[in-house]
Design a protein around this nucleic acid. Structure first.
Length: 701
DNA sequence: CTGTTGAAATTTTTT
DNA sequence: ATTTCAACAG
């Protein structure tokens, strides 16, 4: 088989639109890909096609939303390329060496892949010098950035003035939005933070000082990574070298990029040559990170040669599910109209399930999941989705009680827990002694040292250019006298370590463990986390690499840390809707579908926010392949304040399921049944409550 | 300046 | 329920 017909063979598995996209030339290409329309397959084939056509893999840049997505795509590109290589004519002997060289050349794993932030880091380590970045910069995550901002805020006395001054989290969000949307602070405040308008001047001053502080500390925050990448592309010399690195740039999830990212893209290819972007305006759910659907709408205007390919055939869901989800999104004003359809015409209609309360909901979901499992759908092919991380707490407790294993994605991550951050701070301080945030985290761990002394010590260290010897002359207070010399030894040993990374972590752990035990009363599980961290460290070649990766791409679920799961392990997936992006399961349960949760009360300020919540709901629903359950508890208990007996309120079904849409769902009410020993009693209550609930339902809905 | 205690405020999504 | 803030004693 000739190479050409081999690739034709591979491409024949795609539908005509997908094939058009995969084999498009090098003019700008916009793929509007509805949910489940095989956009990953299309991108993967496109990359493989480019490589097969002779493009050097190292000159392809694949920008994805998560590292997981990038790894998955590159793996599939590899598989495809291997398949192609096998199909090449292979006349014995001499050619086999040649063809294995060819195979090496086309390895997809050599493609540049990753998130904007991860790629930015790699480029800045390499070319940062051109714009005067220190090579050994460390990266601040959101919390670190807030901490540094707080340091500056305290210095400026803004914390004292009045309690109405925006808190660090808000201030950080404002700053971040300015950077990512490339807007002046006045505009951002007016549009998104009107209640902070009175503080404009103070905020400006605060941000200026914050920028200086970052520079002095040799750190970059998430926004800086993009900002400096963009700056690199504006520096005439550096831009030339960076631009020349890539022939093709492909961007996934383009609807969730922000203005700064679109500028980076423009910088990489001003005429759009070699540019491919994929997105779905109906799934734009990251505007709180300054992402804007406009990017995808404006793309054809910015690059007039753009070809638009729309993918509408859905390979994921059954038609009854699509009928319902199409209805949900049809109520949104939108521009790229798609009508998703499937060849899988039959299947169970999606359900709207009315539950009594949160406990009932958890119970119902678990029963239904177990029923599916009995019929052969493993737990990991089922998922429970929710708007906010804490919405799954009751369910998690119940799953644990019944020994049903689960992995949770989204919400607080392992690396964000205090003790892990503490330990990492030691490493970060060693890597970059100018990092004030790391220092002011480590130092107050010692008794007798608080924020004040810590700040002083960091100033001394900064003055000395980051040489820990500068601390030798310092006289610690009595309480810290014993530990101080040991800390000094530890840190000096870590600066130029002779041992491998896990040994370094071990040394930190030995030092930190007793302090941890004093600080927390539930220390045993935390100590175990630290042991696990030591294990993880052995997987990394360098400390810098570990620090970078743990910041940019933290393990998304606690269980991920244990390494690849055993094959016989089966576990249910719990996920925030945001973290469920791009994924799919056989059966999907969306819980807490009540107004206030979806749309979240926090996001009903303006119509745009509400539209985003609608898309969020749409994303959740379109994750389902075969079975879709939408659950809404009728009654919510108020956990707040002394629980005077039976305080509760009633929930309204989400506004995104009005009557006409609801007709595409089957409606159910949970039936309590023989779960417990007192079968009789349970049945009795059911009779009463379910009737009264139906009554209430009639009145409320 | 540190560390503790008690009161008050808050309530999302994440690179 | 948790986190953040303010006041106060050592």
């Amino acid at each position: 088989m000739s190479p050409i017909s081999a690739i034709d063979d591979v491409l024949s598995r795609l539908n005509p639109q997908q094939r058009e996209a995969a084999t498009h030339g090098d003019k700008p290409l916009l793929i509007v890909a509805g949910a489940g329309t095989g956009k990953t397959a299309t991108l993967v084939h496109r990359v493989a096609w480019l490589i097969a056509r002779g493009v050097d893999p190292r000159r392809i840049l694949l920008l994805t939303f998560t590292r997981r997505a990038s790894a998955e795509m590159l793996r599939r590109v590899d598989a495809l390329l291997r398949q192609l290589a096998r199909a090449q004519p292979n006349d014995a002997g001499a050619t086999s060496e040649k063809s294995s060289a060819e195979a090496r050349r086309i390895r997809g794993s050599r493609v540049w892949g990753g998130t904007f932030h991860a790629v930015a880091t790699r480029l800045l380590r390499k070319y940062g010098k051109a714009i005067k970045l220190p090579a050994g910069f460390t990266i601040h995550d959101r919390t670190d950035s807030e901490d540094l901002l707080n340091v500056v805020r305290t210095e400026q006395g803004l914390a004292k003035i009045d309690r109405r001054f925006p808190k660090k989290g808000t201030a950080m969000a404002i700053y971040s939005r300015c950077v990512n949307s490339r807007q002046k602070i006045d505009r951002v405040l007016k549009k998104h933070y009107p209640w902070c308008k009175d503080w404009t001047d103070e905020l400006k001053k605060l941000f200026r000082a914050y920028v200086d502080r970052k520079e002095a500390a040799g750190v970059l925050d998430f926004d800086d990574l993009l900002l400096y990448w963009s700056a690199l592309l504006n520096d005439s010399e550096a831009a030339e070298s960076v631009r020349k690195m890539f022939d093709c740039v492909l961007v996934d999830e383009y609807q969730d990029t922000n203005v700064l990212q679109s500028e980076i893209l423009y910088g990489l290819s001003p005429d759009g040559r070699g540019l491919t972007i994929v997105g779905d305006d109906a799934q734009s759910i990251y505007s709180f990170r300054a992402a804007t659907v406009r990017n995808i709408f404006d793309f054809p205007e910015r690059y007039p040669d753009t070809t638009i390919v729309t993918l509408e055939q859905n390979y994921r869901s059954t038609q009854p599910i699509l009928d319902a989800t199409n209805q949900v999104i049809s109520l949104a004003p939108k521009r790229y109209t798609k009508n998703l359809w499937s060849e899988r015409t039959d299947g169970q209609r999606p359900w709207v399930v009315q539950c009594e309360d949160e406990d009932d909901q958890a119970d119902y979901v678990i029963r239904q999941i177990l029923t599916h499992r009995e019929s052969g759908i493993d737990l990991h092919r089922q998922a429970v989705l929710f708007r906010a991380s804490h919405h799954s707490m009751v369910l998690e407790a119940e799953l644990s009680r019944r020994d049903i294993p689960f992995h949770k994605y989204g919400g607080l991550k392992f690396v964000e827990t205090a003790h892990v951050k503490d330990l990492m701070a030691f490493l970060r301080l060693a890597e970059n002694p100018r990092d004030v945030v790391a220092g002011t985290r480590v130092l107050p761990l010692l008794p007798g040292i608080g924020p004040g002394k810590a700040m002083q010590l960091m100033d001394v260290l900064l003055e000395a250019g980051g040489n820990f010897d500068a601390w030798k002359t310092w006289k610690p207070p009595a309480a810290a006298a014993k530990l101080w010399p040991r800390l000094l030894t530890l840190m000096r040993g870590l600066v130029k370590p002779a041992d491998d990374l896990s040994a370094q972590v071990h040394r930190v752990r030995k030092f930190y463990a007793p302090l941890l035990e004093m600080k927390y009363d539930n220390s045993p599980p935390r100590l175990r986390d630290l042991e696990q961290l030591e294990q993880i460290a052995s997987r990394y070649r360098s400390r810098r690499k570990m620090l970078t990766e743990m910041t940019l791409d933290p393990p998304s679920s606690t269980q991920d840390l244990a390494g690849p799961p055993h094959l016989d392990d089966d576990y249910l997936i719990l996920s925030t809707i945001h973290s469920a992006k791009g994924l799919e399961w056989d059966s999907v349960f969306v819980i807490h579908v009540a107004d206030g949760n979806i749309p979240s009360d926090m996001a009903t300020g303006n119509p745009e926010e509400i539209e985003e919540e609608r898309r969020l709901f749409y994303v959740a629903l379109t994750r389902a392949k075969n079975w879709l359950y939408v659950c809404c508890p009728l009654r919510y208990y108020y956990a707040f304040r002394p629980t005077t007996s039976d305080q509760h309120g009633y929930a309204q079904r989400t506004r995104f399921l009005p009557k006409p849409v609801l007709e595409h769902f089957d409606q159910h009410v949970t039936q309590l049944d023989d779960d417990s020993d007192d079968r009789e009693g349970a049945k009795l209550t059911v009779a009463v409550t379910s009737r009264s609930i139906r009554q209430e339902m009639k009145e409320l809905w």
